[in-house]
Design a protein around this nucleic acid. Structure first.
Lengths: 205, 205
DNA sequence: GTCTATAGGATGATAGAC
DNA sequence: GTCTATCATCCTATAGAC
């Protein structure tokens, strides 16, 4: 019998580089979002993307660079979402009103918000910190200049966004059924977006 | 010459266990606050506390347990600070007003707020997450029941607190002198507390 | 484009001396 | 109460085959 040209253990289907990049970035966003920069291994990302660990490194050079690209991608999606709202709104006040719902919608884009939050707590890192500061300021400037909100309006929007992030990060929805306090806090914090949030939380693996 | 009873390399001065515990917890709070749970090594904590790595583990059993104790300690300090404000205030509205300043004061207690934030982003962890949810709800209940704020008031206070945490985490004060946007955002977000915040940020190692 | 093998460097925790 | 020595594991990154 001739040597069987070994069918290797599921070598991931060939895929154009650009597509694979996006797939890895999406997977990495989820994993980094849940475990943080240091808490995530390149192997976890690889498994989430269905490829080998060295290939992840090969494609992004270093874990740090992968994280930076995840940040950039997340920030980009944030901007797109905000600009959509701005374009659809007739006045700054309407923008301010709609922005909250748009932010809540981003929870559907698995990990985006959590990955950004993970980048914030990494602010002490020289390179990640610099990127986080720049990114945060870009959002601030966008809301002030393009959405034409006052600094106070931007501040309040960002504040409630950070609370939103935090409640999602600690997975408060898990306590919705067992704690009256949790229910009350979520009701007052999420308002009309509650159902959407609970839905997204429920779909967690 | 008789064998010299070796003077070991600076064996940390003997200290009662309780005192050493507190010293380690304080050091750990700073390190965990800056690098997060996974990003912190027990050796970093040990060095910050001026003792050996195994001794840290010996005293707290596991790194996870050390982190949980850091969380508990930070939460305790938060409660104490809030209750002081409540006791000194004549009305819920006055409490609401003063609470912000009290929160900003906590930035002096190196790492407390950042360590808590690090616990939030660790919310996906079974045991840390549970502790984070409980802790957050305790604060919510305290502000509502003891400070007698409305759920909406508590939400808004927490929201601005989370923004405060975030701006500190990304070390925005570093950009205060070089970015007009950073200056504007910090002015509107910190208000009267700005000087205190800048002072604390400047004292960073 | 993707994988296997593996080097090289931490890191958490244990054992046991002083 | 505190340290030294050390193990076992894990993890990023490289080398090189297919």
């Amino acid at each position: 019998m001739s040597t069987v040209t070994s069918t290797l253990p599921t070598p991931a289907t060939r895929m154009p580089a650009a597509e694979r990049r996006e797939l890895i970035l999406a997977s990495a966003t989820e994993v980094f979002g849940e475990h943080g920069y240091a808490g995530t291994t390149t192997d976890q990302v690889a498994q989430a993307a269905g490829i080998s660990q060295p290939y992840v490194v090969r494609m992004f050079g270093t874990k740090e660079n992968l994280f930076l690209e995840v940040m950039g991608r997340a920030l980009g999606k944030l901007k797109v979402a905000f600009r959509e709202v701005i374009a659809e709104s007739a006045s700054p006040d309407e923008t301010a009103h709609r922005l909250g719902a748009a932010y809540a919608d981003l929870i559907t884009d698995r990990g985006i918000l959590l990955a950004l939050m993970q980048s914030f707590v990494q602010g002490g890192d020289r390179v990640v910190g610099e990127a986080a500061r720049c990114g945060f300021l870009e959002i601030y400037a966008l809301l002030r200049d393009e959405a034409q909100l006052t600094p106070e309006q931007v501040r309040d929007f960002l504040a409630h966004g950070m609370l939103f992030n935090t409640l999602i990060a600690i997975q408060l929805p898990l306590a919705y059924d067992t704690s009256a306090d949790a229910r009350e806090l979520m009701d007052v914090a999420f308002g009309a977006k509650l159902q959407k949030v609970l839905g997204a939380a429920g779909s967690k693996k």
